[in-house]
């Protein structure tokens, strides 16, 4: 037992060192675009972890998780848009000019996502299984069309940001600093997520996944616990969305698309449901696979598709499941 813990610990340590060293190595060998693409990986890993909290631990298969990524991204773009254009976001009941402060934006994004998740969750969580999959998809589609219709913010064409949101001390416009910022936020988020799934609340959520009827008979109001989990996951996705908008300095309604929701699900399943590290691994592998394949062929999706199918059929617990077998030294 101690032996396996150590192995896992060593593995994590190596992973962290690799991630810390990566930007320096990339710059040293003159391939600094790697920093940018790894930043993207880290951001998606965070979104995948937040999705895993509800899909993997709570069996709430949301097919609309991208909606919260999109909301976060738009909060970042809109608030800074208003500062730059010097038009108040709203005038009533008080005038608010928007902001370029990343910390404040993160906070607002989480609040907005939580609010939307609370409202949509109240309805969605009345349904189960396939109906839940579809109703979450429907809500994401609604937001997709809503943002297409917002002409002020570019409608279908999206909104270009004039530089990244700012932080004190850290220069977010520097790609390397921004990479470390994302790595730091992801690391903090992983720790929070691990605590969460291992807490009393986490146990309740897992109980709801395994046997909701029994949970109710035990005296749990499962609806509120599931709703809370749904809201928590949404705030995580919103943070990823803010970072994503800042990374690309551009947002468009495509962020709400079912395709992105699908990709997030793929990352979670690929890595292995119900494990925080699995979601991270899934995101890394999926995006790297995408990049490697697309380096060789324009038609990379043609090959990625069958690979995904192959993984589903033959690696039932995802990649983390395979890895765990090796780390534990036995089945």
């Amino acid at each position: 037992m101690i032996f396996t813990m150590n192995r896992k610990f060593i593995f994590l340590l190596i992973a962290l060192i690799v991630l810390m060293a990566l930007p320096f190595v990339a710059e040293a060998i003159g391939e600094s675009y790697v920093i940018s693409s790894m930043t993207r990986v880290l951001i998606f890993a965070m979104a995948a972890v937040s999705l895993d909290l509800i899909v993997g631990y709570g069996a709430m298969v949301s097919f609309g998780h991208a909606a919260f990524v999109g909301l976060g991204a738009y909060v970042a773009a809109i608030l800074s848009f208003h500062v730059n254009e010097a038009i108040p976001v709203f005038n009533f009941p008080f005038s608010y000019d928007g902001s370029n402060n990343l910390l404040l934006i993160l906070l607002v994004a989480m609040l907005v996502a939580a609010l939307v998740a609370a409202v949509t969750g109240l309805i969605s969580l009345r349904t189960h299984g396939i109906h839940f999959i579809m109703i979450t998809l429907a809500f994401a589609q609604m937001l997709y069309y809503l943002f297409i219709s917002l002409d002020t913010y570019g409608g279908e064409d999206g909104l270009l940001m004039q530089g990244r949101n700012q932080l004190p001390v850290i220069d977010t416009s520097d790609d390397r600093s921004f990479y470390f910022l994302c790595l730091f936020i992801l690391a903090v988020y992983i720790v929070l997520a691990l605590r969460l799934v291992n807490s009393q609340f986490g146990r309740v959520i897992q109980g709801c996944k395994l046997n909701e009827k029994r949970m109710q008979a035990l005296g749990f109001n499962t609806y509120w616990y599931r709703l809370t989990a749904y809201i928590i996951a949404a705030t995580g996705a919103a943070v990823a969305g803010v970072l994503l908008a800042n990374k690309t300095e551009y947002v468009d309604p495509g962020l709400f698309s079912w395709h992105l929701s699908g990709e997030l699900l793929v990352m979670v399943i690929l890595g292995g449901l119900g494990s925080i590290y699995g979601a991270v691994i899934g995101a890394i592998v999926y995006l790297l696979l995408e990049q490697i394949l697309s380096a060789y062929t324009e038609h990379w999706m043609f090959y990625l598709g069958p690979i995904l199918i192959f993984v589903v059929i033959f690696a039932r617990n995802g990649l983390y499941g395979l890895l765990q077998k090796r780390l534990n030294g036995h089945a």
Partner: peptide, 11 residues
Amino acid sequence: HLDQVLATFGL
């Protein structure tokens, strides 16, 4: 259902 989602997404 999730496995089916992933596989048919691949399709």
